[in-house]
Structure formats: C-alpha cells, structure tokens
Design a protein around this nucleic acid. Structure first.
Lengths: 210, 210, 210, 210
DNA sequence: CATGAATGAGAGTTCATTCAT
DNA sequence: GATGAATGAACTCTCATTCAT
C-alpha cells in the first residue's frame, strides 16, 4: 500500500514521519490517533500522508510492519549471537536485549503491544498473529535445541514452556514502557544494575520453579 | 462522578446500562465507543447518560471500576475457598476460576486489559495501577503463606515470583478472549478437559521450572 | 430515510430547508451541491441536516421526491379540471399549467430535469424512470380517451404520439427555466400574451402537422 | 485557452486525451470528473493537462467544443447528402444519422446534453447557446427551402416548427443514450429495423399531426 | 428527572492546482 | 516540455455535549 513517493523520501524525513506517527498511534491507539495531529507535528500537508499511504489504515499498517520487523530483527540478532551458550544464558541475553530495545524504541514496542490487544482495527488476522507466533516459534526452537543438549528436563512440554517464558518476558518488558503496569515500585529496574539482578532472578525462577 | 440519579435506578436498568456500555467499550475501545450507539441499544435518552455520569469519561470510569470490582471479587472468593490447600492447588484453582470468569464475562475482562494499554485516556493513575497491584499483593500474600508452610523454596524472592505467576496467568486468560494471541492452536483449550490439562502443565512448570 | 425530527419541524423551517436545498441542487447538481453551503445559507448546524436526512443522498432523495410529487400534483389537477374538454384544449391547458408551475417553482423543475440527465447519482432506477413514465402514461390515457371520442386519427399510434407530445411540451417548459436553451429570442414568451400565442401554435402543429 | 503544446502533439495522443476526458466528463459530470482519474487512465503527468489546457475548465471547454464540432459536422453532412430530397425524407435521414452518431459516440452526445443542464459551470453563454441555436437555424433553413418547394403548409410558422422538430428529434436521440428516459420499453428501438419504423412513425406524426 | 434536537469541532479523505526538478 | 510531489481548501460525516421542553 505504501507509495514509492514515500520510499523515495530522504531518510531523515521518512524517519521523522515514522517516528511521529508511531508516537501518535502508541499514545492514542488506532482510532484515537489523528492524521491532523500527525501532520501538524510534521509540518507537512495533510494530503501528503494520504498520497504516501493511501489512507489511515495504510499508514498504520506501515508503522506496524515496521515495528514488527524491528522486533524480529532484534530477536534474530540475539539468536545468532548466543548460538554457543546454554538456554538460560540465552534467555537472559534475550531479556537484556529486549530491555535495550524498549529503552531505545519505547514507542515501537508500545505500538506493537497496543495492537495485539486492539481488536477494533485493521490488522489482517495474520498480521495480528504473526508476531507472537514468531516469538513462540523462536522460543520453541531454542528449547528444542536445549532439550537435545540435555539442558532442560526431558519430560518438558516445549510449547507450554515457550508460552510461559514468553508471557513472563513480555510482561517484564511491558513494565518498562507502561510504568503503571509495574505492581511494585522496586520491581521496575530503573538502573542497569538493578535490572540485571531482576533478570537473573526471573530466569532463576523459570529454571528452578518456585 | 456517578450521580445518585443513576444509583437510585432499578437494579435491572442499572445492570443493563452497565452491560451495554461494557460491551461497547470492550468492542471499540474508549475513543471508538459511541454514546450514540449505547443509548440507541438501551433505548434511553442521550441526556440521561450525561446526567448519570457527567461525561463519557465518567461513564467509562464507572464501567471500569465495576469491572475491577468484579475481578477482585472473584480473587477474594478463590482465596477464601482455598484457605486450607497448598499453594499449587490454590494457583490451579485461581486459574480455573479465571477461566470461568472470562468465559462468563468476556467483555469485563476485555475492558480491563484494553484499558491497561490506553495511556491517553481517563484512568486516574491509581485506577490504572489498582488492579494489577491488587493481583500482585494477592499473590504475594499467598506466597508468603506458602513460604511459612514450607511449600516453596526458602530463598525464593516472593515479589518476583508473584510477578512471574501473574504474568503467566494473565496471559493464559488473555488467550481465552483474544484467540489470536494464542501462539499455538493446540495450547488454547477449547474444551474443559483440555483446558484443565493445560492448567496442570502450566502450574507444573511454575513449580518445577523448565 | 427522512427523520421524524425533520417532519416535526415548523412548516416555515421545513419549507426553507427544502427551498434552499432545492436551489443548491438545482444550481450545482448532485455532486456539486455542498452541504456546507446549504447550512451556511440556512444558518443551522451542519449536524442537523445529517440528523434529518441521514446523509447527502437522503437529503437529495427527499428533495427529489418532493419535486416529483409537486409535478404529479399539477398534472393531476389539470386532468381533473379539463375532463370535459377535447384533447387539444386539454394539451393547451397542460402547457399553460406547466408554464405557471415553472414560473412559480423554477428550481423544482430544474432539479427534476437535472436529475433526469444526471446518471452519476443516487436515484434508484425506479425513481429515475418514475416521472417520465408517469407523464407518458398520463398522456397515453388522454390520447386513448380522445381516440374513443374521435378527436384524433384512428390510425394514430398512441404511444408514439404521447412520446412526441411529451418531448415538445417538456422542451417548451425547459426553455422557461434554461433561457439559453431557447433557440430563437422571440420564441421565448416573456409576457403572458406572447406565451399563449406560442402555445397555440405548438398545439396547432401537433394537431395538423407541418 | 488550449495550448499549442497540445495542438502539436501526435494525433494519436491528442485523440486519446480527448476520448478519455470525454468519457470522464460524460460519466461523472463537470464537478464529478477527476483530473486525477483522467491522467491515471492516460498514464501521463498531471501537470501536462494543466499545461495543455490551463485548468479544468479549459479542458472541459476544449472537450465541449470538440463535441459541438462533431455534432455540427454530422448535421452538415446530412444536409449536403440530402439536398435533392423532400423535407420529410431529409428529416428522416437526419434522425437516422443521429442514431448512428449516438451509437458511435455515445459519450460525445452525453457530454453535450449533460452540459446543457449545468448552469453553474464554465460554458460561456455563447457556447451554451451555440449548439441548439445551430440546430435550430439548420432546421429553419431546411423548412424555408421546403416551403419554397411547397412541401409544407404555407401558413406554417417556421421557427415554431423547427423548435417542435428539434424537440422531438433530440428527445428521441436521448432515449438511445439514457435508456431510463424511455417511457415505454417498446419505444426504444434496440434493433435497426425497429428503430427505422419508429423514425417513420415520428416523422409521420410531424407531417400529419395527431 | 427524562428527553432528544441542536450544535460545531474535528475526523478522514479528495482534488485542482502549483512548481521545482 | 514533462513530471509528479506537495499543498491546503473543501468535502461528507460523526460525535460528545448542551439545554429548552
């Protein structure tokens, strides 16, 4: 749907458009986001957005795909960089990378989780499923490898384990971008060191149980 | 904010107003929800809603508080009914009760998770935090009891364990009302029996680790 | 489609809304007509028009049906008032009544003929056909009566005669509201007397041929 | 208004631009017609249209003049080719040629009658009058000749006769491009033979009266 | 107290027109 | 001379909110 006109824009402009739009969608959701508000912030003509993306849905889809790709990229990176470590090290690295990512791109992650929960809108079903499915399969692969290497219990149901890990990790990352989600003030690791400790403890619980 | 006029309404009418409004907010989100649409379904005058709740925000806040209370009620019930069981039995019961709850009141739970993500709108901070905080403290209490009874590791960090458990449980319940969140078709327990198995396995992972 | 709210309006207001809207559609056609422009002239809120008629199409349909009914009314009147006259007297009376009508309601007639030629728009097919069909059948009845009374040729094809008469009459009336349609300056009867002469001559040609 | 740049274009390109534009104006009217849509179909740059014709009005005027010239051409042809026939034969030939013309160029005729009704837009008065005036004078000449040759009544008012004939002929041609204008299904001559019969009957009524 | 007509700001969207390349 | 990106006014339509009845 996205127009060549947009793709041919100077990188700086493209990035600004994506950033401002992402912020708008992240802050107000699909319906709440206002093209008026976006173009005012961007100081461009309203018509330009429509020539770039067709309509509001087109803009959102672009933003969303962009966000999804960013998330996938970071997952891929971690996998490649942790190939020779054991599963618990790898999970730890994933969480740390996730923390970095949400710190660097809080609005991208906001758009991503917002849209997972917003059913009112124009994500094709497959888009909606795509990312959690991707994360799920990603974790399944990791766990499968780990089982082969006898790092985890032979009797573990991989799918359910993946589900559990994903839930915990996702929620942990959410606490970083949605402070109010954080149930205890001291769980939210403001500083790097505290944060690493938390990660260690979470991994530890996933490893040993409660 | 809610008016006495509303509170003095016959129960049946009050309930209908809450039910219809909850559905609307659950289906379309805060901004997407339309007072027009609500009053049309209710066959009452538009002005009435505004006299009852002041404005759209007031209506939403009422709906949301109501939803929160319902959730808290169910948590309280479970706690009372499982006092003499061990922690793993209790967690299992909580999850089962949660499944019942989301099956019976899918829209209440929908409103609740929808609104966790909406930052631009009118949840007072405390309202926003209230429910996850409540669940967190609720689990902390349970775990504290359990530690006293030597059901769990002595060295377990209770807050982080509570956080972990809550994350997994919440995500499990989300899969029931937002099917696309479910990463694997077979994780979603369509039938009662399958669902109980899943719960057992999740609890098992929480207990023993991976 | 038209709302009760509109129908319950004071007559004066209703008439003004119809008059202003009719002028707008008559002057600019369906697409060209602007709700903005209409409400500005009426000094009412934009929303009101939409609450009365649903949308632009609803407004137009109301206007159009209204115009059609007015035209039909005038045809009915003439028929009733000329029952005992011969066909040529009757045709003359019809044309004279038509002249009166277009003089009194030029915009109603304008809307009516505009819409016959505008295919881009929301007249249900039957609406489109309705009025010319009505006029055609109306003339067929008159001619059938006339044939029975031996006022016209026995071998005359009534349908084609009706078609011919309607074409001439319609065009004559058009010249009154669309001056530029008038091919010769002196055919257009500005004054009553001249106009009657023209009518006589037209009827004469229809009667005797050229 | 039309630019030399346009006139110097290869014939093929000029014709394509005129054809596509005529279709657009015929289908959607002046206001409804979209330059966007035209240039998309033509696969030329939007700016070109504006350099050729100045603005939308300029394009339309060109199209309209072109249509008028085509109509005049066909009238001239018929006159030349029927010089030695009597008036009723000539009228018949004119109608037959008109049928051919509307069958071959329905959109040209559509533009022409559409625009007769559009008062708000950019036909200079003289353009608006031009074509019907031309047709009127054309018929007057024919009738004047016929009177000299004693083919028609000596007492006939030529102008009014011309008006009458033109009205009937025009309406007949309209039925071919605007089927819904046709009052009776069987008046509309779908096939050539039926059509000729209709023409004969119409001419006969014009000749002998009703 | 209930009603629902009136309001007008603001939404998404289209489009003729301009102008730098 | 051709191009098409940028523009912003104008469009239809929605909606929370007000207030006279």
């Amino acid at each position: 749907m996205t127009n060549n006109t947009f793709l041919n824009l100077p990188d700086e402009k493209k990035e600004k458009i994506i950033a401002v739009s992402t912020n708008e969608f992240a802050a107000k959701g699909y319906r709440g986001a206002s093209i008026n508000s976006i173009v005012k912030k961007l100081k461009i003509a309203k018509g330009s957005i429509f020539s770039y993306f067709g309509d509001k849905e087109g803009l959102f889809l672009h933003i969303f795909k962009f966000a999804v790709e960013k998330v996938k990229d970071y997952l891929r990176d971690v996998r490649e960089n942790t190939k020779d470590q054991n599963i618990f090290e790898r999970l730890k690295k994933i969480l740390q990378a996730g923390v970095d990512f949400t710190d660097r791109h809080p609005n991208i992650y906001r758009v991503y989780i917002r849209m997972l929960l917003n059913s009112d809108i124009p994500l094709r079903e497959d888009m909606q499923k795509s990312i959690r499915e991707y994360a799920h399969e990603f974790l399944c692969e990791l766990l499968y490898d780990a089982k082969e290497k006898n790092e985890i219990r032979k009797d573990l149901d991989i799918k359910i384990a993946a589900f559990t890990i994903e839930a915990v990790m996702d929620r942990f990352l959410q606490t970083r971008i949605l402070p109010f989600l954080d149930p205890g003030a001291d769980i939210y690791g403001a500083d790097r060191k505290k944060c690493e400790e938390l990660i260690d403890q979470i991994i530890s619980i996933l490893k040993k149980g409660i």
